[in-house]
Each structure stands twice: as C-alpha cells, then as structure tokens.
Amino acid sequence: MTTLSLIGIGTGNPDHLTAQAVKALNRADLILLPRKGDDKSDLADLRRQIVGAVVTAPVTVAEYDVPKRADQTDYLGAVNDWHDAIAAVWQAAIDAHLPKGGRVALMVWGDPSLYDSTLRIAARLPGLTTEVIPGITSLQVLTAAHAIPLNALAAPVVITTGRRLRDEGWPPAANSVGVMLDSGGAFQAVDPHGVTIWWGAYVGMPQQALIHGPLAEVAAQIVETRARLRAEHGWIMDIYLMRRGDER
C-alpha cells in the first residue's frame, strides 16, 4: 500500500507550515521534489529549505524534472496530456524508491484544493491512497499582507483565473474578485471605474512586492512592476484582489 500525502506549504515560507504539515513530512518514507528548470530554480530551493528546516527524520528525497506543457490551441487537451506525463514521472520515482510501498510526500504551493491540479494528477496513479494536508493559500497571504478582509460586509467573493477574467470580464454578481494564475495584466480587461485593486507578487517571500489603489491609477504601475520583477528573478508568482465600491 502506497499513501501519497499532498502537503500545502503556503507560499514557501517555512513559518507558514502547519504542525500537521511538519508531522506529515517527517513520517514520509519518500519526498518528491520537482524541478522546473534553471529559470525557476528558486522554487526547488525553497522546497529544499523547507526540508532542511523541518525534517528531522531519515527521509529519502527524490528530485525529478517536471515535464513541459505543450503549447497548443487545445488548452484543456494540452493540460490533460501534461498531467498524464507528470503522473508517469511520479509513478517511476515511486517504483524506483518504494517498490514495496510506503508513504510519499509532495509539497504543494498554497493549498492542494485551490486552483491546483495535484489531486487530479494523483488520481491517475492506480493503487494509491491520497491524503491532503491543507495549507495557507496565496489569497490568504495577500489579504494578510494588505491587512484587508477578503470580502466586503455580507458581500460575495468570486475566485477565478486571469484567463477567464480576460475572456469573460467581471464575474456576474461578484462584489470582490480574487484572481490567480494570471499570465499578466488581465485586470486591464475590466472597466476600472470604482474598482480598487490589491496586488502582490511573491507574497510571503523575502522578495514580496505589494501595490494597491484605484485600478485606473495603478494598473500601469502593476504591469511595469510585474515585468521588471519577472525579468529580475526569471519567474513570478502574483495574485490580486479587486473590489467594487468604497468599502474595504
């Protein structure tokens, strides 16, 4: 029997790990650690730092190269093929290091339940029992960094992606919109009148950058800052919350 623990690690800050996450890492027989190329080596380094900071048990760490997603017009098809390839890499690593089964741990940015496909990939592996250790989401870290509530008083919140915001505009009936997985500047697709934005890159990390204000006034600043930071670090993780009206 093989058990895969998907462990939410927040934004990579060891202080964001829960006690449950630390226990799960220490009881693992194998920790899978993904590498996404030299331009994103910081992400692997952060996972290594977490292992070094909290793992005291003798655990095998196996690093693997994440397959690249094909660039094709069929987005969902490309994603499904990509997930198949990642699942095959996981299976090969598990078979190599735990041929008789055991406990496998995989650290997931934020929480495995929110705009993350690790659970869908795990479902492709036969004979595997999956458990989820919840983590702090980047949306929580963003609102904490700006010291704001996620929602206006008694008002709804929609969490969506940059792709959908760009294609469909402001979600109907939403007062507040949290946007994840934006390739850059999707907020420019909405009417900025009366909209406030709270943006953050690398939230919770040492290189954290924050901008907030009326969307009409700070949109260009966010676009410029995002481009500069991506060029400087070779990668970027950013997220933002937008709200209509004056109430925070």
Rank of each mutant, 00 (worst) to 15 (best):
R163E: 15
V79M: 11
A44K: 00
E232F: 10
A78T: 06
A19F: 12
M107Q: 13
A189I: 03
I50E: 02
V157L: 11
L32A: 01
D65S: 12
T60I: 10
P67Y: 04
L181C: 10
G127I: 07
R166S: 11
I133H: 04
H193R: 15
W170S: 07
V22C: 01
D116K: 04
I239T: 10
I9F: 04
L32W: 01
V218C: 08
K36P: 00
L106W: 05
D246N: 14
G8F: 08
D71W: 10
V190A: 01
W109G: 06
W90L: 05
R163K: 15
L32N: 07
A122I: 08
V79S: 13
H146C: 02
R27I: 12
A70T: 15
R226A: 15
V51K: 08
S41V: 13
A87Q: 02
V177L: 08
R166A: 15
G169T: 03
V51D: 08
V223F: 03
V59H: 10
A201R: 08
G204E: 00
D71F: 10
V203R: 00
R124T: 07
R69Q: 13
A155F: 10
W82E: 02
I239R: 02
P156R: 07
P34M: 00
A152C: 09
P14M: 00
A122Q: 03
Y202H: 14
W235F: 13
D111Y: 04
M107H: 05
T56Y: 08
G12W: 01
A123L: 07
L119P: 06
D84H: 14
D95C: 05
T225H: 14
A231M: 13
T225K: 12
I159R: 06
G127R: 00
S183W: 14
A122W: 02
V158I: 14
A96M: 03
T196C: 06
T129E: 15
R164A: 09
I133M: 01
